[in-house]
């Protein structure tokens, strides 16, 4: 068989040789996404965006560690964790799209929303710090997320419950990875102890926000679909206490960073770091808005 050019020869007949251009773009393809009775679809969509944006934005921060991690093993670990979170984000953003009526797919939510439309907690978006800061942030975010996802496995929305059940398996080892590094650094040398202490002090001002419920979270918790994050504080404190105890570290005494007039990440009010993060995350898709890959 002859071809006019090499490109035709390699794309002819069987696209399965290639990872791109398969035409399958919906991670919820074939999943029944009917909204359960009595659940407000707009609230469900907003809630999926909250959990999805936490994963998407923190995944982006983790991806920035590629080629910057202290050792190859940790480079691979952080890329793996970032990939897991990206997978969770894809499913959750796609779930939000179906709940909103199916007009938009996951890419729309990731690439074509503006800063005030993102509903992630601010801790996910903060500028990348050193490895101590990363360890502290991953410990806090994964401990919190695991507590949420674990409860969400009982959600009345079967799609959310299924996503949570898969997520629990993954975030369990994300938390173990962060906890083990916290112990290694905290109970290591004087210098590593100091850096880990600084890392905790950097992230701790954003911890209270994680447990401040948004009205949508409260409403969906009452409906048996979502989780009131304030109910996970006890479990979070227990786990963090256990890790910091083993790491010979103490809780930092730093004031919380309040939102603006009581509004923070869940309301679309973000820190300065968010605009720069989105500029990087969205630039390719916005430069080529019609492109598919």
């Amino acid at each position: 068989m002859s071809f006019d050019n090499a490109y035709e020869a390699i794309t002819e007949e069987n696209s399965s040789r290639w990872a791109f251009g398969t035409g399958f773009e919906d991670p919820l393809s074939g999943v029944d996404t009917t909204i359960p009775d009595g659940v407000d679809a707009a609230e469900l969509a907003a809630y999926c965006l909250m959990l999805g944006d936490d994963a998407l934005v923190f995944s982006h921060r983790l991806q920035q560690w590629c080629t910057n991690a202290p050792e190859l093993e940790d480079e691979v670990a952080l890329a793996n964790i970032g990939l897991d979170l990206l997978g969770q984000a894809r499913l959750l953003l796609a779930r939000a799209g179906r709940a909103e009526g199916g007009e938009h797919g996951e890419d729309y939510y990731a690439f074509f929303r503006d800063e005030h439309e993102f509903r992630n907690v601010r801790l996910a978006e903060l500028e990348r710090g050193d490895f101590g800061e990363l360890t502290a942030r991953l410990l806090v975010l994964s401990t919190w997320r695991l507590a949420l996802l674990h409860r969400l496995t009982g959600s009345r929305d079967p799609v959310l419950s299924a996503i949570a059940a898969k997520g629990v398996k993954e975030v369990t080892y994300h938390r173990d990875y962060a906890a083990q590094w916290t112990v290694r650094l905290g109970d290591g040398t004087d210098y590593s102890h100091e850096r880990m202490t600084e890392g905790l002090a950097t992230v701790w001002p954003y911890v209270d926000e994680l447990f401040t419920p948004h009205p949508v979270e409260l409403s969906l918790a009452r409906a048996g679909v979502g989780v009131d994050p304030s109910r996970t504080r006890g479990e979070f404190d227990d786990v963090i206490g256990q890790v910091l105890g083993a790491a010979t570290l103490t809780l930092p005494e730093v004031p919380s960073v309040p939102g603006v007039s009581g509004r923070a990440g869940r309301d679309g009010v973000h820190t300065e770091a968010m605009g720069y993060l989105l500029a990087e995350l969205q630039s390719v898709a916005r430069a080529h808005p019609e492109a598919t890959w």
Partner: peptide
């Protein structure tokens, strides 16, 4: 019907494509 191993498994699209082909 197929199920993903990990939620972020990038091979899912290729698996779907291979099955169809």
């Amino acid at each position: 019907s197929i199920t993903p191993t990990y939620t972020g498994c990038p091979a899912m699209d290729t698996m779907r494509d291979d099955l169809v082909h």
